[in-house]
Design a protein around this nucleic acid. Structure first.
Length: 490
RNA sequence: GGCGGCGUAGCCAAGUGGCCAAGGCAGUGGUCUGCAAAACCAUUAUUCAUCGGUUCGACUCCGAUCGCCGCCUCCA
């Protein structure tokens, strides 16, 4: 079996074939560091985190590069608003980004280049383009000649004439052609500047990725990724720059993930539906966000809502409940002589977990399908677990524990089931208690009173206490070891 | 206007022409319980927006129609 990935350039799923056997070179466009990251950034980071982990799990060596844009118009404008420097602002939000990524449990890429640390690589690349007649200086700026690259538009499937007809292109007196894009911007007074052959200025946005990917991954590499909104103009322009300068194919396969919407509206600050990662993590465990994001294929749109998060919470808790029950089994107490109660069908279902997971993930990283495989397996494990007693066959207990171990290993590729099950379920409760006006001590007191009532068979008072607590969204669970309680958030 | 994508049960969501159209949430029935709740088990689409076409056979391929979304300006 080979891994199939959807390539935006060809518009088809293709078998992964690396330039260097067994080694995937991956470049992903990272953030522009001028604000806190939102849930869309989280989807991007989590999608590629999953992809890298899966490729490594499948035996590939992966060199993963993700850049930081730490100089651009938005950074300059925001720094001015806050009366600080671009450098300070960018550094601050890169640190905030790391805080969010750490909270989400996202692994660091191998290389995280910053634009401002690669000015020389960028000016070299621009000089090459000028020397080849593919760029020109105009005033203090340098522009790319879109007409010099015949394949311009091949990624976004559009042509230059259609785009001019779109008539949304900003008028700029400096450009010879309206579609030409800036490689180098002459600086205005008070802006950060670097020296260049064209005078003091700063790089355009697209050139950094061409320059830094070439430095760290070479002129041609395997996979380039980012959000679908980057297809045009950013990635189209990267192709024009890199292939124009190198005369070699830039990237073999492009991976673009879909957007996150909020209650079916695109996130935007003007609509007031802009949710940052930390907003969400204040209410939900990071694994719930991961579970939610991976419940849809990465290329499809994903709609964030309270309902969707509640569904995700219920689903993830179902997985953790299974883990918790199997964790509680102890093979050491089993009977070495007892016959197995496992049917061939049950054994097959659990044994095929890993194979079915790989089939799903090999199919363009279909995490939604893979989650389905998890649940299907959990259903079998739960059913068997219900039949297991402390005196069951040791081999049966070990079989379930092994199945669970495999499940945890595979779920970890999506960053799921990494917590201790009991702790996860308990943490959920604590979070809900903290978010409510519930006094745990008062609840415990009522439970104690109810316990005595039940011993005395005073069912009326016992049920009254239960109903009273339920009115506060507190659910009681009577078990053999006493009564526990949880908060119902729906 | 140009380009791209989507429309599968109450909701979410897989499905790379052919065994009963995965899975989750909610619902329903059960096990458990003093009664419940929680948990677990079982169950829930003669049908895949509509209409045609290709094929022995289509949710899957092609065309048209309707509806929704994204990009074309910074954007994950």
């Amino acid at each position: 079996m080979t891994i199939q990935t959807y390539n935006t350039l060809s518009g088809k799923k293709e078998a992964l074939q690396t330039l260097e056997p067994g080694h995937v070179k991956l470049y992903v466009c990272g953030i522009t560091a001028y604000d806190y990251c939102h849930i869309g950034h989280a989807r991007s980071a989590l999608a590629f985190d999953m992809i890298v982990r899966y490729l490594r799990y499948r035996g590939y060596k992966v060199t993963f590069v993700r850049n930081f844009t730490d100089i651009d118009d938005k950074i300059i404008a925001r720094a001015k608003e806050q009366s600080t420097t671009s450098e300070e602002l960018a550094t601050r939000f890169i640190n905030e980004f790391y805080t969010d990524m750490d909270a989400l449990g996202v692994d660091r890429p191998d290389i995280e280049p910053k634009a401002t640390e690669h000015i020389k690589e960028m000016t070299d690349l621009i000089s090459e383009l000028i020397a080849k007649g593919m760029a020109y200086q105009s005033g203090n700026d340098v522009y790319y000649i879109v007409d010099s690259f015949p394949e311009y538009g091949k990624l976004s499937k559009r042509n230059i004439e259609d785009m001019k007809a779109g008539a949304r292109i900003s008028v700029n007196e400096q450009k010879h052609h309206p579609m030409d894009f800036v490689l180098w911007k002459g600086s205005k007074p008070g802006e950060p500047t670097w020296d260049s052959p064209w005078g003091p200025g700063r790089p355009g946005w697209h050139i950094e990725c061409s320059a830094m990917s070439r430095k760290y991954l070479g002129e041609t590499f395997d996979i380039h990724g980012g959000g679908q909104d980057l297809i045009f103009p950013h990635h189209e322009n990267e192709i024009a720059q890199s292939e124009g300068a190198n005369d070699k194919p830039f990237v073999k396969s492009w991976i673009h993930h879909g957007f996150v919407t909020i209650r079916d509206e695109k996130m935007s600050k003007s609509l007031g539906n802009f949710l940052t990662i930390r907003d969400i993590l204040a209410h939900y465990h990071p694994e719930i966000l991961r579970f939610f994001i991976f419940s849809t294929h990465y290329r499809n749109p994903l709609d964030f809502s309270e309902t969707a998060m509640r569904d995700a919470t219920a689903g993830l808790e179902r997985l953790y409940e299974c883990v918790a029950t199997v964790d509680a089994l102890d093979a050491g107490n089993g009977d070495r002589q007892a016959a197995s109660i496992l049917s061939a069908k049950d054994i097959k279902k659990v044994a095929e977990l890993e194979k079915r997971f790989q089939e799903a993930m090999d199919n363009d990283f279909n995490t939604a399908q893979a989650q389905g495989v998890f649940f299907d397996t959990v259903k079998t494990i739960n059913r068997l677990q219900g039949k297991i007693t402390p005196k069951s066959a040791v081999t049966d207990i070990e079989f379930l524990k092994n199945g669970l171990a495999t499940l945890k290993k595979l779920a970890a590729i999506m960053g799921l089931l990494r917590e201790d099950a009991q702790q996860f379920l308990a943490a959920r409760k604590e979070q809900l208690v903290a978010a409510s006006a519930i006094d745990p001590a008062a609840v415990e007191a009522l439970i104690a009173e109810r316990y005595q009532c039940r011993l005395d068979k005073k069912w009326a008072r016992s049920d009254e206490i239960r109903d009273k607590l339920l009115a506060q969204n507190i659910e009681l669970h009577d078990g053999p070891d006493g009564t526990t309680w949880s908060v119902n958030d729906s």
